[in-house]
Design a protein around this nucleic acid. Sequence first.
DNA 1: AGCCAGGGTCTAA
DNA 2: TTAGACCATGGC
Length: 215
Amino acid sequence: MLTSKGLYDRLLATYGPSEGWPGNRVTMMATAVMVQNTAWTAVVRAMERFPQELTAQYLLALPIEELMDYIRPCGFMRRKAETIQTVMAWYGRYDFDAAQVEAVPQERLRQELLALKGIGEETADVILLYAFHKPVFVLDAYTRRLLSRLGGTAQTDAERRVWFTAGVPEADKVYADYHWLLLEHGKRYCKKRPLCEECPLREACAQKIQEEKSS
DNA sequence: AGCCAGGGTCTAA
DNA sequence: TTAGACCATGGC
């Protein structure tokens, strides 16, 4: 079976280096909430509805109904509007100063984020990685699906994390690129089974594809 | 026309 | 502790 490093190299060669999560830190955190169980195109449409650039202070000062209206295209607007303000209030505990946040150990930050209503493991990890440059490997629907199709036998997220991080430099830049590459790949191929014929990873997935055909 | 997106929370058993 | 309902909207 393909190794994690092999997969990373293959994806990098295919799609090139990532452009990272778009927007400044605050935009990044807000869009991380907006994209929960939502297509990225909806997030883009929501961002276009805001009358100005996002800052933490602006988002905190917005009446909740107004914030809900801006993010409407993303769905789950009641919950997400509340969560966005909750995250910004959390950022306020550090005086909206990224350097202060980054000075805190990764695991403690993770616990703080997980304690916020509306922030689960994936969103917490994405914020740690892309907003505060902590070396966290992010697991999401795409990475789980792809690992399974490669023939991975990991049953839990802990096991999946071990597989993905083995043999790969433990650096936020690498994890960020890797996560982004997995998404780029997943959006193009793994969602649509017929496209497997032209997928750059088709040999690596061959066994799984065969199993599906025969069932 | 229905299915599902880069999830998370709450509740019931 | 785990499965299932629910949250809302838009793209395809």
